[in-house]
């Protein structure tokens, strides 16, 4: 049995990591969950692409996580105080997004005929990532949200396109977004504006 045949596991991995990203207020957990999410993304794409090409997603994703981690100020682990009900609200919103994914998936499967777990993984990342973008204003969380949405899109797009150049450019965009995130955090302390 190959990795590609066990597609329920990466779907679960992607779901759990995305939920952690959505409710966590500690950037270390968020970046760790993002790294786990990229394992799931790699696993799902491996069901469509050869291992050598799919691993590009994993390497680029982990590099993005490393860049984001390195840019964080060590003292500021907990990002912001939120009300105790906030995680519950976010979980509820994620449940609604999941319901949307389940309802939309058959019509997407009709157009892109690949394993339904792969499609669900992609759609889940897009919807929860989009939800995340709608409820945050902090640069690191916006970048993580964008990376999540793009990961979901990359899974769907891998089902219709296998171009090496596209894979390379998408990896460059992933790394570029992480660098922009790191820059937005570090820029205020870099130098004076002339």
């Amino acid at each position: 049995m190959t990795l590609a045949n066990l597609l329920l596991l990466p779907l679960l991995l992607v779901t759990i990591s995305t939920l952690i990203i959505l409710i966590s207020q500690n950037w270390r957990y968020s970046v760790l969950a993002l790294a786990l999410q990229y394992v799931g993304v790699f696993w799902l794409i491996n069901g469509l692409w050869p291992l050598g090409l799919a691993v590009v997603k994993l390497v680029a994703g982990w590099m993005a996580c490393a860049v984001l981690s390195a840019s964080q100020p060590a003292a500021d682990v907990r990002e912001e105080q939120t009300s105790p009900t906030a995680p519950a609200f976010r979980l509820l919103a994620a449940a609604l997004a999941l319901a949307l994914v389940v309802s939309v998936e058959p019509s997407v499967e009709a157009r892109i005929p690949v394993n339904r777990f792969i499609l669900m993984g992609g759609l889940l990342l897009i919807s929860v990532g989009w939800l995340h973008l709608g409820i945050t204003t902090r640069p690191i969380r916006v970048i993580i949200g964008l990376l999540t949405v793009l990961s979901g899109f990359e899974i769907l797009y891998a089902a219709v396109e296998t171009s090496i150049l596209i894979a390379g450019l998408q990896a460059a965009v992933t790394l570029g977004l992480a660098l922009v995130g790191a820059y937005l955090i570090a820029a205020p302390t870099m130098e004076e504006t002339p």
């Binding site: 965009v173 570029g176 977004l177 660098l179 922009v180 820059y183 937005l184 820029a187 205020p188 870099m190 130098e191 004076e192 504006t193």
Partner: peptide
């Protein structure tokens, strides 16, 4: 992505 340093140059608060 390249435009971000142009809009938010180093040293901005």
């Amino acid at each position: 992505l390249l435009s971000v340093p142009l809009l938010f140059p180093p040293g901005e608060r």
